[in-house]
Amino acid sequence: MTPNATGADAVIDAVTAVLLIVGALMSLGAAIGLLRFPDLMSRMHAATKPQVLGLFLVLAAIGLQMREWWVWPILAVAWIFQLLTVPVSAHMVGRAGYRTKHLHPELLSIDELEAVVVRAAGQRAAEKAQEAASEMRHTGSTRDDGSARESGNARDARDSGSAGANDGPSA
């Protein structure tokens, strides 16, 4: 920043100062969110602010201060790099959080994975029941015995369903 700036310099310096302070406030907002939000998912929402918006504001301030055109593409590359990496890591963290049940289900307004989990649990229960039935036919045991084991298998599958559903191709 220019000391004792006048005219256009003063305006640019003032804009820079605002951008820098708002960018720093994003970090403070993220920290407050980390401290006050109740579970991992809502903390993830707060954590993104300095990573994307805060970095954008501060990089814009750098661009304003350097007063060279060739700086802007470099700053854009740095920001786009952040834009590419942040969603991927957030996705991984969020999925790991869902798998290890680090969430309060009553706080979710929509759980899009729930239907998938239930369906996968049902499929797994059906497979197990089929296996059990074919085993039963080989050993020749009674019908009553088989149905009891079936229901037990179904409950097992539902318990492990949330982990099993995410063991998809990308896991």
Partner: peptide, 22 residues
Amino acid sequence: SLLDRVLASDVLLAILGAALAI
């Protein structure tokens, strides 16, 4: 939990980046 710590260290890294950029 461990994931909370990962998230917070990510935020700490972003804060460091902001300091460097400022």
